[in-house]
């Protein structure tokens, strides 16, 4: 399997505070790689370093074989990297339609029309302002916006944050679908169990240091580590491919489903 993204020895700072210490990771092509860690472990900083928003002070980043360590963000993303930022970062004062007109579209299967087919809810809310959307709708919009670049690598920062379990399932289903479409995925999550169920590979970041790496299947077996990661509020529910009748019913009224 070829490598979509490789980072070696990243040291990233915010001003004077040292956040990442020699962080390295690989994202394999056509697979879902998840980056886990507790609050403040440096997950978001890692992603911001990878897309050039907070460039590392030292280290090397290679994306699709090109050294992108010092490449400006817009070039990295135009090169086939979709980035769904933490907190969704919807343009709250723009309509859904205008939000979708911001990305520099690259040729490929994803167009605004296809977004509306795939996320009928967004089509219904086309003329609504971003801030009028529910959290789930905002997440869909944020993912759709990144997909319009027709990326080969999709980077998502805590897409499940603040969403109801049912909506989280839907978001994870979309992530799985992008993998089925041939995209490589790097997924940062706090929702440890759910993300391990869809991931192929996993990394665990702890206080800015990469503490563990391996296959998701191996990490799932390590109950102790998972408990430590998920913390006291270990989530009870888990991601499940089959929906209960009630959930299917509820989804029918909130159609986010991937076509």
């Amino acid at each position: 399997m070829t490598i979509a993204l490789e980072a070696e020895g990243l040291n990233t700072f915010y001003g004077k505070s040292h956040i990442l210490y020699d962080v390295g990771l690989k994202v394999k092509e056509g697979a879902i790689t998840t980056l886990l860690g507790r609050n403040g472990a440096g997950k978001t900083t890692t992603l911001r370093s990878l897309v050039g928003l907070t460039p590392p002070r030292s280290g090397k980043i290679t994306i699709f074989g090109k050294d992108t360590t010092h490449t400006p963000t817009y070039r990295i993303t135009q090169n086939g990297v979709g980035y769904v930022p933490e907190g969704r970062k919807i343009f709250a004062h723009l309509t859904v339609e205008d939000n979708l007109r911001v990305p520099q579209e690259r040729p490929g299967p994803w167009t605004i029309e296809r977004v509306y087919q795939t996320f009928p809810r967004l089509a219904e809310r086309k003329m609504n302002k971003g801030r009028q959307l529910s959290g789930g709708e905002q997440e869909m919009l944020s993912i759709a916006r990144a997909l319009l670049l027709n990326p080969q690598l999709l980077i998502l920062d805590e897409p499940s944050q603040g969403l109801a379990p049912l909506i989280v399932k839907e978001v994870f289903r979309i992530v799985q679908q992008t993998k089925a479409d041939g995209m490589s995925v790097l997924l940062v999550e706090q929702n440890v169990r759910a993300s391990l169920e869809i991931a192929d590979y996993a990394y665990v970041l702890d206080h800015g240091v990469m503490g563990w790496s391996g296959t998701a299947a191996d990490l799932v077996k390590d109950e102790e580590r998972i408990q430590a990661l998920a913390g006291a509020s270990a989530e009870e529910w888990s991601f499940d491919d089959t929906l209960s009748a009630a959930e299917t019913e509820a989804l029918a009224h909130q159609p986010h489903a991937v076509a």
């Binding site: 400006p72 993303t77 343009f91 007109r101 911001v102 520099q104 670049l149």
Partner: peptide, 22 residues
């Protein structure tokens, strides 16, 4: 589109650049 990007940029320039805009 350029105008839309300017309006988006007044809100969050980082996100605009992450969407492939110079």
């Amino acid at each position: 589109r350029v105008g839309t990007r300017i309006r988006a940029g007044t809100f969050d320039l980082d996100t605009v650049s992450a969407l492939g805009i110079n």
